[in-house]
């Protein structure tokens, strides 16, 4: 659907200042139907890359390729694209309805289609009651909702959202996350969205691209990344009512680590390596311990990405 090939971007803030690289050789591909999260801290270069994809700024090196499903000419490609920039401000004196109609007409939609689609998404996003108000009276969340409607209006094949959840309240965030999931499910739309909030990306995306200081640190499946990092440790909680000598033996079991002990409830919690788990379980059962729980230690994407970053 979209291929980013060795894209670099050099900026120079003014004539006297030294130039700096905002992006350095970023390459990745997005397949049709994927929901891809674009992660990175503020200033990592996410918005710069999105602007290059959208043709708003030019890359210093590298190229952007769209698949033929999107169209051949620039115009046809852009008619299949939906884009929402970060924290946009729309014409304050136009109403939400005017703005939606304006962008719908720019996408060659008929008035009937604009009304039907606009109303459908406005109801879904809970903004239909305010569509006839001037946008200068809208809150940040309302503006974001109008932006989302105008992005979805023409049923694009690829949607690019730049920080769509920033500045929204928890309800607004949930609504937009639900819509992203629904659009993908109903229409098979490819969605690429940037965020610096990792749990949002983890919740919605199958794939993730992680950018740090203009360099791509990871590109691939979320589940692969999580399983790769979370498969090494298991957590065992057991109830122990035996003698203290046996307890000392259990605690000294090789490659196990006592995480905590609750003296009152006679509960012990161990962390054990993957390859030791079977032997450890049979050992403690032989000693008469009762297993309360046994689980793989879960690790959040956020922790993994911090580690990926820290490793470098």
């Amino acid at each position: 659907m979209l291929k980013i090939d060795s894209v670099s971007k050099k900026f120079k803030t003014d004539f006297w200042s030294r130039s700096f690289w905002a992006l350095r050789g970023v390459s990745f591909e997005i397949a049709a139907g994927d929901v891809v999260g674009f992660l990175g801290a503020n200033g990592a270069g996410k918005t710069t890359l999105i602007k290059i994809i959208m043709g708003l700024i030019k890359a210093t090196h590298g190229k952007i390729y769209f698949s033929k499903i999107m169209g051949v000419s620039k115009k046809s490609i852009f008619s299949n694209l939906g884009f929402l920039p970060e924290r946009p401000y729309f014409y304050p004196n136009l109403t939400g309805r005017d703005f939606i109609a304006y962008l719908g007409k720019l996408n060659n939609l008929s008035s009937l289609e604009i009304n039907q689609q606009g109303q459908k998404w406005a109801q879904r996003l809970g903004i239909d009651f305010a569509l006839d108000r001037q946008m200068k009276n809208y809150s940040k969340g309302m503006l974001q909702r109008v932006g989302i409607i105008s992005t979805l209006l023409h049923r694009p094949k690829l949607i690019i959202l730049d920080e769509p959840l920033s500045g929204l309240d928890p309800i607004g965030r949930k609504e937009i996350k639900d819509i992203v999931a629904d659009v993908r499910k109903q229409y098979g739309t490819t969605i690429f969205f940037s965020s610096h909030i990792v749990p949002d990306v983890e919740e919605l995306c199958q794939k993730v691209i992680f950018l740090e200081k203009g360099k791509m640190l990871y590109s691939g499946s979320v589940s692969e990344l999580v399983s790769k990092h979370s498969s090494s440790k298991y957590r065992v909680i057991l109830e122990w009512r035996g003698c203290w000598e046996d307890k000392a033996i259990i605690c000294n079991y090789p490659n196990s680590f006592l995480l905590y002990e609750n003296e009152l409830e006679k509960v012990l919690c161990f962390e054990i390596a993957k390859e030791e788990k079977e032997q450890f379980l049979s050992f403690i059962m032989d000693k008469g311990a009762k297993i309360v729980s046994f689980s793989q230690k879960s690790i959040k994407l956020e922790e993994i990405l911090y580690n990926v970053n820290g490793d470098r």
């Binding site: 602007k51 043709g55 115009k75 046809s76 946009p88 962008l103």
Partner: peptide, 14 residues
């Protein structure tokens, strides 16, 4: 400055 242009010039128009 307001990024409104980003929503418009990224439609199918020159």
């Amino acid at each position: 400055e307001n990024r409104t242009i980003h929503m418009i010039v990224t439609r199918s128009l020159g």
